[in-house]
């Protein structure tokens, strides 16, 4: 059962996400909030969201840590692992013990083991018949997610889908494909902006992301606008 405090947190999370969705918001920031909520809500160590690009290749668009090792394990999962299986089948994939990965997932397994991940769950981001990506939950201990957690994580994945596809509809009409591309492009600019800050402030990429997000929040600006300003060198922070 979800205990009282967790139920409260779940309600808080959905309230926050719903608030975001009715205002002007930044899709990468929304997804970032969402993956961070996952680590608060569930017994997991890390989470990430991957979206399919124009070639149908999955790319990390938000993750609880910017550490390249975590990004790598998720990319490997998207190549041959639970993430891509979830994406292809459109169904939740529960890998309750990483050691029991099929041989084809060996690179993913090695990387997960190296990072101390024992179980991985992939939840599809679905829009009707189409799967646009997957939410990945990584746990340090083997074992299945609780049934309530599976339902809650699917609900969060659905919010992510709505967030991605809704972002631009108020302003302009874009196809699903264009909206996905938009989310991935804004991630590219954010990565470049992290590089700008890493150079100008002499910080790590992880610290650069925190700086970026903190600045955007403090100034009530969209993460992507701040990133754009840094990359175009019209903004210095």
């Amino acid at each position: 059962m979800i205990d009282g405090t967790r139920e409260d947190r779940l309600i808080d999370t959905f309230a926050t996400l719903a608030d975001t969705l009715v205002a002007d918001y930044d899709v990468v920031d929304l997804l970032q909030t969402l993956v961070e909520s996952c680590t608060d809500l569930f017994d997991i160590a890390a989470a990430g969201i991957l979206l399919a690009d124009a070639d149908g290749e999955l790319e990390v668009v938000a993750s609880t840590s910017e550490a390249s090792r975590l990004v790598e394990v998720m990319q490997l999962s998207a190549r041959a692992g639970p993430c891509v299986e979830c994406f292809v089948t459109g169904a939740v994939v529960s890998l309750t013990d990483v050691e029991e990965s099929p041989p084809a997932w060996q690179r993913f397994r090695d990387s997960a083991r190296e990072q101390g991940f024992a179980a991985v769950f992939a939840i599809p981001l679905r829009l009707r018949e189409t799967t646009i990506g997957a939410l990945n939950l990584l746990s340090n201990v083997p074992g299945a997610l609780r049934q309530q957690d599976v339902r809650a994580s699917q609900a969060l994945a659905d919010v992510a889908t709505i967030g991605i596809l809704q972002e631009r509809t108020l302003r302009e009409s874009m196809s699903v494909r264009e909206q996905l591309t938009n989310a991935l492009t804004s991630r590219v600019v954010i990565e470049q902006a992290k590089g700008v800050l890493a150079h100008s402030r002499g910080v790590s990429m992880e610290e650069a992301f925190t700086l970026l997000r903190t600045y955007a929040r403090a100034n009530r600006l969209l993460l992507s606008s701040v990133a754009q300003g840094l990359v175009e060198q019209t903004l210095v922070i």
Binding site: E57, E59, V60, S68, V71, E72, Q75, L76, A78, R79, R107, V188, E191, Q192, A193, K194, G195, V196, L197, A198, H199, S200, M205, L230, V231, E232, Q233
Partner: peptide, 28 residues
């Protein structure tokens, strides 16, 4: 090395692009 490696390294290429554009003050 593999398509995955490229995907993964692309993120680093974007980060490095940011560092270089800040070093040289030129467009991305």
């Amino acid at each position: 090395d593999s398509a995955t490696r490229q995907k993964f390294s692309r993120r680093e290429i974007h980060q490095a692009t940011g560092m270089v554009l800040a070093q040289l003050r030129i467009p991305a």
